[in-house]
């Protein structure tokens, strides 16, 4: 190993094994710090909101369920907030229902390849921006605990497919009125529907999804159907970052909207 380091270009003078002795951390002249700062602010505010929402009790107002608390799996949940009326967890869980389910979408986003990039850059400054030196003395990346656990991402993906299904279900159910009759549509319905679409798009655009659908194959031509899906997922995947941000804000907004309606601060406008 050691000797072959030099083989391509032998006959070196001793000094040449040294990098340019530049002191500056970066010579970039643009505003490279802007992106990490904005990302930090955006992610941090989302975290704060999420924490609040987890404990906020006003997560249901018929026919709307706040996405952060869906699906509601406890018996304390009102009948309409449950998926097909089920409450599989029973009533032993002492904390608010949001705490129970938020781990799944939370973990999905936490281990998402895009979010990893954005918080490694903006929170951990590793690196803060390209060709800007990071402040850490040692670096091992995702080779050992805890970061090696990022590799479980695909299980969160499987889980999130379920979450997307639930959100779609909730959006469909929001076409019923307070009495459970079909044929209702309010601003909340639209918001929940848009949210469900975007969350599903984000979920489908996941790198693990792309891999599972067909990325792991070496012969696309032998699996034409999977290849078609792969093409679709790849198109979405190219916009994964965009979908990550947009869906993060729609889910936040949808959640906030339902809670505000539930608290009576906002009145839901009904179209029919």
């Amino acid at each position: 190993m050691e000797r072959s380091l030099m083989t391509q270009t032998t006959a070196e003078s001793p000094a040449r094994r040294q990098r340019a002795q530049l002191k500056a951390r970066t010579l970039r002249t643009d505003r490279w710090w802007l992106a990490p700062v904005l990302t930090f602010a955006a992610l941090a505010s989302f975290l704060v909101y999420g924490f609040w929402a987890m404990f906020d009790p006003s997560y249901y107002i018929a026919p709307y369920v706040a996405p952060f608390s869906a699906p509601c799996l406890l018996e304390v949940c009102p009948e309409g907030a449950r998926v097909f009326g089920f409450a599989p967890i029973g009533d032993w869980f002492p904390l608010p229902p949001g705490v129970l389910v938020l781990g799944l979408p939370g973990g999905f986003r936490l281990t998402c390849y895009y979010y990893r990039k954005s918080y490694y850059r903006s929170f951990w400054l590793s690196p803060p921006a390209c060709s800007v030196a990071e402040p850490h003395g040692k670096y091992t990346g995702e080779t050992r605990l805890p970061l090696i656990l990022q590799n479980v991402h695909r299980y969160f993906f499987y889980g999130s497919v379920l979450i997307s299904a639930v959100l779609t279900y909730e959006a469909i159910v929001a076409f019923r009125n307070t009495d459970g009759e079909w044929g209702h549509m309010g601003v909340g319905t639209v918001i929940l529907a848009v949210n469900a679409v975007l969350i599903s798009a984000y979920t489908l655009s996941c790198h693990s999804c792309r891999h599972i659908v067909a990325g792991r194959l070496n012969h696309f031509s032998r699996h034409p159907l999977r290849y078609r899906f792969w093409g679709l997922v790849s198109k979405l995947n190219a916009r994964h970052m965009l979908l990550a941000w947009v869906s993060m804000y729609t889910v936040l907004f949808a959640d906030l909207y339902v809670r505000l309606v539930a608290k009576g601060i906002v009145t839901d406008i009904t179209f029919f």
């Binding site: 390849y113 990893r116 990039k117 490694y120 850059r121 590793s126 690196p127 390209c130 060709s131 670096y139 091992t140 990346g141 995702e142 080779t143 050992r144 970061l147 090696i148 590799n151 695909r154 790198h207 693990s208 792309r210 891999h211 990325g215 792991r216 995947n237 190219a238």
Partner: peptide
């Protein structure tokens, strides 16, 4: 495993190869 997918390689590639999205992440998977 050292790669933390922060995508600087992709940003600088003059051939616009999507190194991180199309090579590194699929390889990680």
């Amino acid at each position: 495993g050292y790669c933390n997918i922060t995508k600087c390689c992709t940003e600088v590639c003059p051939e616009h190869i999507k190194i991180t999205d199309n090579a590194l992440i699929p390889m990680k998977e």
